[in-house]
Simulated scan of single mutants.
Amino acid sequence: MGWFTSSSPTPAQPAVVNQPLTPNNLASDLKPEKTEKVKPCCVCKDEKSRRDECMLFSQSDDPQEDCKSLVSQYKDCMSGFGFKI
């Protein structure tokens, strides 16, 4: 064959790197990624604002009793992120 051939050369196979098994890399792909801890000011913003609005602008004689359900929702939301109120 000359220089005008229809077949292309085959690419070289990539080299496979085998690392020795050590305790540091045995299950590295199974480990969960590190998640950053959230700050309490950055979660449950909607629940907090509804709770605050209710407490501040309540026309009731006992705003604490009037807004009890919203306070409970806020506490449940915060406990879902690991905060204890």
Rank of each mutant, 00 (worst) to 15 (best):
W3M: 09
F4K: 08
F4A: 05
F4I: 04
S6F: 08
S6C: 13
S6N: 09
S7T: 04
S8F: 10
T10H: 05
P11C: 14
Q13G: 10
P14V: 07
P14G: 02
A15R: 02
A15I: 07
A15V: 01
A15G: 03
A15M: 05
A15L: 06
V16L: 09
V16C: 03
V17W: 02
N18L: 11
N18Q: 12
N18E: 10
N18S: 08
Q19A: 15
Q19K: 14
P20A: 15
L21H: 08
T22K: 15
T22D: 13
P23Q: 14
L26S: 14
L26W: 13
A27V: 09
A27L: 08
S28E: 14
S28N: 12
S28C: 03
D29V: 00
D29I: 04
L30T: 00
K31G: 09
P32H: 12
E33W: 13
E33K: 11
E33N: 11
K34S: 15
K34L: 15
T35H: 15
E36W: 13
E36K: 13
K37R: 15
V38S: 12
V38C: 09
K39A: 11
K39Q: 12
P40I: 09
P40S: 12
C42K: 12
V43S: 08
C44W: 01
K45A: 03
D46T: 09
E47N: 06
E47M: 02
K48P: 02
K48S: 03
K48H: 06
S49K: 05
R50A: 08
R51D: 08
D52C: 11
D52Y: 08
D52Q: 12
D52F: 12
C54P: 05
C54T: 10
M55K: 06
M55I: 02
M55H: 07
L56A: 13
L56V: 08
S60I: 04
D61W: 08
Q64V: 03
E65T: 04
E65P: 00
E65H: 04
E65S: 12
D66K: 06
D66G: 08
C67W: 11
S69E: 15
S69V: 13
S69P: 11
L70P: 01
L70K: 10
V71S: 11
V71P: 00
V71R: 02
V71D: 11
V71Q: 10
Y74A: 00
Y74F: 07
K75R: 05
D76T: 00
D76M: 01
D76W: 00
G80E: 03
G80W: 03
G80P: 03
F81C: 00
F81N: 01
G82A: 14
F83W: 04
K84Y: 06
I85N: 01
I85S: 00
